[in-house]
Write a protein that binds this DNA or RNA. Structure first.
Lengths: 138, 138
DNA sequence: ATGATAAATGCAACTCACTTGCAACTTGGA
DNA sequence: TCCAAGTTGCAAGTGAGTTGCATTTATCAT
């Protein structure tokens, strides 16, 4: 069975503090990318007093370990989602209500190879997001 | 012949002020997306004293008129490029030196239709950027 | 041309996401 | 149980982008 996130943290020499576990729990419960402020809100509701700074630092650390993925929808703040153990995918966001929907697909493998041949870059990442109007808002 | 940017501005009831024309000239000279700070730098070099705020406001206005396109590469600031009269395309950025290269292609037409069928969204935009290492940095 | 008017500019002050410095506190291993 | 390394919270800072307002400028009708 695959290594859990907690195992990955231990392997990275990270400590499993109470705030850190609470932050991780919220990220793992969320099926859609969430913001640092949303994480902090949920922590407050769960009676776990964790400073905003601590959320920022943990999210940055989880990103470095490639356990969470940043998702930038140009809303003025970043979102984050667990990628460890989940399928690589993309999103669509409604310009009206802001709702985000997962697209369980990534059509970019062949295109990435094409771009690598054309540009001689070694590609190791990409961003693909769609925007539009959901059935309720259009 | 196609309507020029200046014509579009006039049609939108916008005035052609000296600062505005200077900002537009810089955007049109740039073949790659540039930041507001870079525009202001170039204005200063060209001896055109234009306030940063004015650049921000003009870029926002040009965006509303769909004459320039925002390009967010998650560098902590936005970039902008003229889209009026230019082919829709995407970019690749080097994680080492930050250099940006235009990719003169967009492979998303069919995919957009597929996503519309799947999600029932009316899609009117997308973001696609590649990241990796250029030949010099890798 | 000229004067009215609506839009645009510049300045200063502000907002807000995110970062940094530092002292105090946990965690996990010896 | 003790200690070192890692982590946290608080306060203060950074920097992109925005807003309010008085002044200036382009445009249009006369």
């Amino acid at each position: 069975m695959a290594e859990s996130i907690l195992d990955s943290l231990r392997a990275g020499g990270k400590k499993l503090t109470k705030p850190r576990k609470a932050i991780l729990a919220i990220l793992e419960q969320s099926s859609l990318p969430i913001t640092v402020a949303e994480i902090a809100d949920q922590l407050k509701k769960a009676r776990a007093a964790v400073d905003l700074v601590t959320v920022y630092r943990n999210v940055a650390m989880l990103q470095e370990l490639k356990l969470v993925n940043p998702v930038g929808l140009h809303e003025g703040q970043m979102r984050y989602e667990v990628c460890h153990g989940r399928e690589h995918h993309h999103h669509i966001q409604c310009r009206g209500c802001g709702q985000i929907v997962d697209l369980m697909l990534c059509p970019l493998k062949k295109l990435t190879e094409l771009v690598e041949r054309k540009t001689k870059f070694a590609i190791d990442g990409h961003v693909l997001e769609f925007f539009g109007w959901c059935p309720q808002c259009r």
